[in-house]
Design a binder for these strands. Structure first.
Length: 435
RNA sequence: CGGGGUGUAGCUCAGUAUGGUUAGAGUACUUGGUUUGGGACCAAGGGGCCGAAGGUUCGAGUCCUUUCACCCCGACCA
């Protein structure tokens, strides 16, 4: 993509109401803009990031045997009355009426819909297991949306539901999804922990949360530095007072606290803050029994499906990547999430030698399948650098003054190093880095 | 849902206490010129029903009433 042909409205100042780094930088970098409380538009750059994350989620789930579906976003109220959640979820569900005065709900989650979909269509143990998922908009009418994409009302979430003929098989799938989620977050380049969690309002026994570690996270965790153990404090401290006191502490305050207990691997435990980006539950027969979704077992007996459910906050991940990877200057995208992996910066657009090299390199990288931005804007050097840092391209090729001596530089966003490279070797060097 | 706050240019904000020419600054934008390795400089421009509605007044950004929106702290939640 050429900088001169795209739409990336970057700004020097952040809106005064943005407090988190991800919120500030995603707005300043021209990724998103706010439409209303908890409502965001994704501009071209933000949309690319969102789609990259979505693609990785989809690829790993498909590899694990899950099937993608798409459920309707507007759902009849009756669906929620039958499960009792119309009342249970209360005002968190946004209710609307159509022209006939019929009541509908904007889907906050889809257990009911998926059970209705599978019920009477999958009728034999021979057709099980089945794991269906979608990556679709959700709406939860939060009492207090905040923190940009971190806690929106409308958000993109992957929700998956599996159906099984036995509890053992459901647990097998639960473990398979745990491993699949680990692959996804690893591919995204994130430092994360899987922690035991409260099962919350969704219900059912056995649930695990996936947290991206970041100082600004809303959840407080206990993690082991040596192994991959982690737990939400809600599950390991007994008293409410103790939990509340810990929740109230800032990241810095938590770092000074000592934990007496040691990890089962005998290493020390520490407090960390986490952003919940994934959650998996063993539902067992909670919904299938309530909604009378049955199958015939080997003996021809009707039984409710054993179920599990699996969620990933896709749009929240966009924010989580930045919460974990940023500095004072802006975003630092991981290789897998960067809207463009390489930014070719022509320092002075009036220098034909710079333009020629930039165009040639751009053509070669695009041909090689590398997501590349060609900064062919008329801005000055300093402006372009600030912009590149704010947007957070992992690598910027600086084609500038040194070209007279046959040199260009590669600016590494993460380390902020300027690496001189012979202009003749730049293509090979970049290909090495982006591998 | 309790408590607090804010709506003035695309963005960040003055101005409102004590009503009074044509509503300001910075930044962004347009044009011309000079610049060209870390968000340049000079000059000239464009851009506002002062969130909305109603009221008081000779006169309202400023006072009154209603309303809408957004933010912060807490509770709740993924």
């Amino acid at each position: 993509m050429r900088r001169s042909r795209t739409f990336i409205p970057t700004a020097k100042e952040a809106p005064s109401d943005a407090t988190l780094p991800s919120h500030k930088f995603l707005i300043r970098g021209g990724f998103i803009n706010q439409q209303g409380a908890g409502l965001y538009n994704f501009m071209p750059l933000g949309k690319i990031v969102l789609e990259k994350i979505r693609a990785i989620v989809k690829e790993e789930l498909d590899n694990a045997g899950c099937l993608e579906v798409q459920l309707s976003f507007v759902t009849p109220i009756g669906l929620w009355e039958r499960s009792g959640r119309s009342e249970a979820m209360g005002k968190e569900m946004l209710r609307i009426k159509d022209r006939h005065e019929n009541e509908f709900v904007l889907s906050p989650t889809n257990e009911e819909a998926i059970v209705e979909l599978v019920k009477n269509r999958v009728t034999s143990y021979k057709d099980l297991p089945l794991n269906l998922y979608q990556i679709n908009t959700k709406f939860r009418d939060e009492a207090r949306p905040r923190y940009g994409l971190m806690r929106g009302r409308e958000f993109l979430m992957k929700d998956g539901y599996s159906f099984h003929s036995s509890e053992e098989d459901m647990i097998r799938e639960f473990h398979l999804m745990e491993e699949t989620y680990k692959k996804i977050f690893t591919r995204l380049g994130l430092d994360f922990r899987v922690v035991a969690a409260d099962s919350g309002a969704i219900g059912g026994e056995g649930s695990k949360e996936f947290h991206v570690l970041a100082n600004s996270g809303e959840d407080t965790l206990v993690v082991c530095e040596a192994c991959d153990y982690g737990a939400n404090i809600e599950t390991i401290f007994e008293s409410e007072e103790e939990i509340d006191a810990l929740k109230a502490k800032s990241y810095d305050e938590l770092q000074e606290l000592k934990i007496e207990k040691r990890c089962s691997c005998d290493a020390e435990l520490h407090f960390k803050k986490g952003i919940e980006v994934g959650h998996i539950f063993q539902l067992e027969t909670k919904y299938s029994a309530a909604l009378e979704a049955h199958f015939s077992d080997e003996n021809g007996r009707a039984k409710p499906f054993e179920m599990a459910t699996f969620g990933i906050g896709v749009s929240r991940l966009v924010a989580a990547v930045i919460e974990q990877n940023h500095d004072e200057e802006g975003c630092i995208w991981t290789k897998a999430t960067a809207p463009y992996l390489v930014n070719i910066m022509i320092s002075n657009i009036k220098e034909t030698s710079q333009v020629e090299l930039g165009e040639a390199l751009y053509a070669k990288l695009v041909e090689s399948g590398v997501d590349t931005m060609l900064d062919d804007s008329k801005e000055r050097f300093g402006f372009k650098m600030k912009d590149a840092e704010l947007i957070g391209f992992p690598y910027t090729v600086i084609i500038g003054k040194e070209l007279e001596n046959g040199l260009v530089q590669i600016f590494d966003r993460k380390t902020k190093e300027n690496i001189p490279v012979a202009a003749d070797n730049i293509y090979g060097k970049i290909m090495e880095l982006v591998k």
